[in-house]
Amino acid sequence: MRQSLLALLAKEPAHGYELKQALETIFGGAYPSPNIGQIYVTLGRLEKDGYVRSVDVEQANRPNKKVYYITAAGREALETWVEEPTEGPRVRDEFFMKLVLAPMTGLSDRMALVNRQRRHYLALMRDLRELAERTDPANRVALLLIEGAMLHLQADLDWLERCQEDLP
């Protein structure tokens, strides 16, 4: 979230609520709607690190509005972020821990764990599919994000199948 806010501020100064709206518009329903408190907390940290500064803008009939803008240090941090390679996704290991460890405790058998997990993944996939159907076809960003999520889920399912085949 730090970097997305920095990137939006590099485009133009904005206040917290505008940043929330911008994130929602760009990424659509696929992105968990950021909570405004979380945005202010992040902005506060960025300010403390010297990456952004804020000015109070007076408004008629309303409390002052805090507008944030990016600093030179912020711009530099953003450049570094854009240029460095991004970490690959990590294997979702929580389920694998259950799969390996739970049978040792006698709590569950692997077949039941895999079967339950498969049905759960398919339920998630159904959500993603329905989300894609509801998404504005013109919003390529949101649709690509959903497609990425679907491809990850497919890989998880394929891996589940491998676990079922190879773990007795």
Binding site: R2, G29, A30, Y31, P32, T42, L128, A149
Partner: peptide
């Protein structure tokens, strides 16, 4: 999951 959208399990917000 809540009915509305949010692919939260796969798309993660980090602060």
């Amino acid at each position: 999951r809540r009915p509305l959208g949010a692919a939260g399990d796969v798309v993660e917000l980090r602060s």
